[in-house]
Amino acid sequence: MIRIEQLSKTFRVDGREVSALNDINLEIGKGEVFGIIGRSGAGKSTLLRSLNLLERPTAGRVLIDGEDITGFDRSRLYALRQRVGMIFQHFNLLNAKTVAGNIDWPLKSTGSLSAAQRAARVAELLALVGLAEHAHKYPAQLSGGQKQRVGIARALANRPQLLLCDEATSALDPETTQSILRLLLDINRQFDLTIVLITHEMQVIRTLCDRVAVIDGGRIVESGRVADVFLHPQHPVTRGMVAQSDPLTAAMLDPGHAFAKDKLRGTLVRLTYLGDITYQPILSHIAAATPARFTILQGEVSSIKDLPFGQLLLELEGSDDDIRKVFAELDRFEIHHEVLQ
């Protein structure tokens, strides 16, 4: 659905060229929830705004449904933006309009619907985001979560195929964040809506996204399925973000900090596995099949979006041969293992 090819953006600041995006290449599929994560100033906001040309790229192409939007004239750009919804960190609602007025605004100012059709669409959207009884309130009378719901309804008014989320939950408390993420996931499934979001919170990526790209210094440093990137972060920035959102994973990635070395006798091994294998009695199987003994030092079984996963930090004791046998068994179950020390 979206293809970004060799996208670059440079700004002129005080006569100097500052590079915000550098040779970005991405492909995002229809109905996919794609996350872009990075620290502030990494270029994620510029990248997201290149998808509806709120930022004009300096070089490269952005293809949506096969068409290069960077070449669009004004009328085609307006038409494109009506098909691409956007929600914002600070909601950006019109304070002078009611909730219903805000949702009606894109319909009224861009669409060709009659007043009655618009009213029906507004009612439908209000019901979708659960704000039917707040239709005549002004944004100032709403909570942050309610404001973002209005933002979502407004973004969906013209039935877009693509929704861009600019740090949509960063101004919300954790509980409200979860409810907004659930709403976005519902919408994604209900309408097969493609969602591209930027965030600096790993938790948002874990809850919502299918794939993720990590951006740093205007470049994509790592990308892939969320579970893979999350369980096997390669780049220091990714590792830092995983560590911040999930101390357990951080400890397992770097057990030297978490455990007293003198207490450890055997080989430290980290196992990770995804999907149905999570429900299999792997450890008891290994215990029965090999003479090696193991201690579980740390472990987590959870899910990323809908994908169950597990990760275990084991201390293996036994002869080299025993341990080789353990690894062979793990390979047989397609369980990823790495020796940490």
Binding site: L54, L80, Q82, V84, N92, N95, S109
Partner: peptide, 24 residues
């Protein structure tokens, strides 16, 4: 941000000025 939101919706500039900017 309010103006940016209007631009992102594909609202033509004159409508942004008279429909959003001035009422705000």
């Amino acid at each position: 941000g309010v103006i940016e939101a209007c631009q992102a919706m594909g609202v033509p500039t004159h409508r942004i000025i008279f429909g959003a900017l001035l009422p705000e």
